[in-house]
Amino acid sequence: MNTLTQEMLLKASSQWFQICTMSDLIEDSGVCALLPFIKTDTQNQIAIFYVNNEVYATSNWDPVGKAQVIYRGIIGSTNGELYICSPLYKQKYSLKTGICLDDNELYIPVYKCKVDQEKIHILIDASNLEVTQ
């Protein structure tokens, strides 16, 4: 497993990257991590949530509020489905699919996560991200 570097991102199609450790996470809440070397401002931040002993990762970009704030929302559930509620205008996005529960035209990208020896890894498909040279 690798720590994220520019070189790796440039080469990557889908690849697991180590982002942070469990001790960085906050139970039932979110934190934010940077994907460096990504050119597009709206794609370079991810929100990581730790809830019910699971780790979830989504884009941090709020497509409605147009700001990097998703990780600061409240985690909720409806009929058993976990979601993150945008702190700006309160849209709810499924933590599993990223689809907005209030408007299924809206979504935020979600990332696969795994925990290995207290380290959080996220699967990133860099082929569709613009990486700085």
Binding site: I19, D24, L34, P36, D41, W61, Q68
Partner: peptide
């Protein structure tokens, strides 16, 4: 950011 000292460049 938990993994960087950078700041949010979208602001």
């Amino acid at each position: 950011f938990v993994n960087s000292k950078e700041t949010d460049n979208t602001i």
